[in-house]
Amino acid sequence: MASAVYNSRLSDSLQAKVTRRRQERISKGMIYALLVSGAFIFMLPLILMMSTSLKSYTEINRYPPTFLPEQVVPTNYTEAWSFPNTMFPRWTFNTVFIIVAVVPGVVLTSSLCAYGFARLKFPGRNLWFTLTLASIMLPSQVTLIPLYILFHKLGWLNSFAPLIVPAWFGGGALNIFLLRQFFMQIPRHLDEAAIIDGAGHLRIWWSIYLPLARPALISVALLTVLFIWNDFLGPMIYLTTPDNFTLALGLNIFRSYFTQVPRNDYIMAISTLMVLPMIVMFLVAQRYIVQGFVTSGLKG
């Protein structure tokens, strides 16, 4: 009698377990269905960009548009790259040049300032840190015009100087903030030990903090690369002759050649070439880039 009750209870709970498992499987299936369809929708623009870049001219003019190219035409890339009145090799070189000139400035000066804010005690430190943070809130439009006039008076217009020199002055408030947060977590006894060994703060910054902060420094460097590669307004305002343009400006010029005859195969080829290096960088270093966005919380 007692055992029969026991058995029926057991089978009840078994039943419940089975239904729960089935429910879990259904909800897992739903999660995957949503993830796959969502990811497909988010990837679709980039897939279409690449597929259009490989279509023939007749195919891009067909309606409704095909999803994947019926006939792959890789020559779109070479033809677009060397299109008359464009300088894509030059524009790529200019963009890379600015990146190479800016990134060391950002990494060195922002980490130097971050060390000062995180580890040194001196009067006015909190005031300057507050001012640094407050400057994030200031919309760039407020300083845009005076800076343009300043660069004009300095004779820096149509050179890379306006895009490079300011980066060597602290490398951006967000980067200082990001690195300071990282430095604060480094245990103090490390610098105390170094001081006993006779090391100065410059030495501690260089040979203890910078190596330990490698992940944060990589985040800062990669976000800077991303920012310069994407920047449009800065180069558009400061650069005037095509030989000084960056890729972003070049793409816009290139596009404007085709307002009458739409050559979306060419335009998408150049767009793909411009996006691919950033996709590769993201795939290789997603961890650092995402962490950078989380810590600084802002884009560009």
Binding site: L46, L251, S271, M274, M278, V290
Partner: peptide
């Protein structure tokens, strides 16, 4: 999946405007 959903942030504004 995270990679797929995050990827659009790296597309330059000029390229995504043209696209």
């Amino acid at each position: 999946f995270r990679t797929f959903f995050y990827l659009p942030i790296i597309v330059p504004a000029a390229a995504s405007a043209v696209l």
